Simulated assay, not measured.
Amino acid sequence: MGLRVKRCFDLIGSAALLLCLFPLMLLIALLIRCTSPGPVLYVQERVGLHGRRFRMLKFRTMTVGADRITTALHESDPHITPVGRVLRRLSLDELPQLWNVLRGDMSLIGPRPMLPETAEGLRPHQQRRHHVRPGLTGLAQVRGRNALSWSERVALDLEYVDRWSLWLDLRILWQTLGTVLSGRGLYGPDGWNRGQLDVDQQTG
């Protein structure tokens, strides 16, 4: 019953946010198109519920061809566009994932979706993180984001799966606002969202 309520919350929440944020998302799309050659969105394969792969959407924040760069990404990386740097600072580049939530690929709250090659490195007991839909934000994101080590983030993902409740989801949503506004932990080692394991592949 609780999971059905969670899915209903995802549907209503993502639809409402897409409607409310449409003007902002349109403005972001125009800024990207006007300031950097290439597509507005980039699409990347990620691992979702029960290991099923899906195509995750993001606003493009880097120059086209940055997928061939092997260095780790940092806030001062010259391949991040000026608009992209602002989008990353405020996590606005993740807004297109509201469509992934509406489609059922993701949830508003859950472990962040991993790249397939990253997920392959999980131990058998860590695969339990895929027993729930990946989220726009999660327990690891409000407790340090990429400032946390790999093992710390996976442990928090498993804690979320074990402790899940609607009340926990509401707490994470509230704490996410403060985390995004403060910019805590946006960049750090061992990242699968912002670091070398997750180079923005701008080929779409």
Rank of each mutant, 00 (worst) to 15 (best):
A140Q: 06
R68H: 14
I109M: 03
T137I: 05
V142S: 05
W150H: 04
S165W: 03
P116Q: 07
A66I: 04
D67R: 12
T61G: 03
D157N: 11
V142A: 05
M56E: 03
D93P: 00
M62I: 06
R85I: 02
Q126W: 04
R53A: 13
P113E: 02
P111L: 05
E159K: 13
H125F: 14
H130G: 09
L115I: 15
V86W: 12
D162Q: 13
V154P: 01
R55V: 11
R89T: 02
V142F: 02
S165N: 11
R112Y: 07
D169N: 09
L102V: 12
V154I: 15
E117V: 13
G110W: 10
L166Q: 08
T61H: 00
R112W: 04
H131P: 03
G104Y: 07
W99T: 12
L90H: 09
R53I: 11
R60C: 02
K58D: 03
L166I: 12
T71E: 14
A140C: 10
H74T: 15
V64M: 05
L156E: 05
R52N: 13
L95W: 01
R55W: 14
L90T: 15
P116I: 01
A66Y: 00
R89F: 01
W164L: 12
D67M: 08
L108V: 08
R123E: 15
S107G: 09
